[in-house]
Amino acid sequence: MTETSIVSYAEMAVKIRAHCLRMTHRGRSGHVGSMLSMADILAVLYTGILSVDPFNPGWEDRDRFILSKGHGGAAVYAALAERGFFPREWLDTYYLDNGKLSGHISHHVPGVEFSTGSLGHGLPVAVGMAIAARHAGAGHRVICLVSDGDCNEGSTWEAVMMAAQHGLDNLTVIVDYNRVQALGKMEDVIEMEPFAGKLKDFGWAVREINGHDYAEIESNLLELPFEQGRPSWVLARTVKGKGVSWMEGTVACHYGAVSDEQLIQALKELGVEA
């Protein structure tokens, strides 16, 4: 990891966060806290990890990236726009009448692999894609980013079991482990701990990382798969609303829209001109 790549990750993350704040402010829409918590992971994925081609989004050998927490789709849209998959101006239409970008992530947008929005859908499809890749002898990877709320869904665990059964080491799950759900903190809803232990017991190769530390994110993702013959699980500890002081760790930032004053203040905290 070089100083240059850290700087580029940080710059990308700021751009993603600023876009998300502006988009949700303009659309008077929610889920900004969920976007901010995974912004650093997305910055590393789209800057240094995923093998994708903005000029050929359907490139056969691309890495498949599925965002299972589709409510955070604006953050992926922001990353895709910054990578040149579509004009940045499209971001200005997010959530608006006749807009290009819907609130939950859509495969009708260039660079988006799969539409989600109802939790628990991403991982089973990722398992199918990983099986298909292995069957075809293809070298690309399948990476699925899930929320901790995603892991409340039974379908996620159905897929967890099947991925282990078939030793899908071309499959990686990254959990945006911010421990804040729609109605409350995880300990008050469904406590997942010992989270890493559960996945180890289910046959996955598990690593816990700081989901806001670029070096840690990058170095671990560069070592995929963690073990031959096992799917990889990255438990990325994050903070909901990361980067905006009054949002961090709050339940309110799951649904709450950003006011005019809050936008100015939030962008200031990010060091971005309003």
Binding site: P124, V125, V127, G128, I131, S155, E158, A159, M162
Partner: peptide
């Protein structure tokens, strides 16, 4: 592929295979 008694995953896996 026998996904076990897990129809949601069965359908998702089938979808993933088909999309490829």
């Amino acid at each position: 592929f026998n996904c076990g008694v897990a129809e949601q995953n069965m359908t998702g896996v089938a979808c993933g295979l088909a999309l490829e």
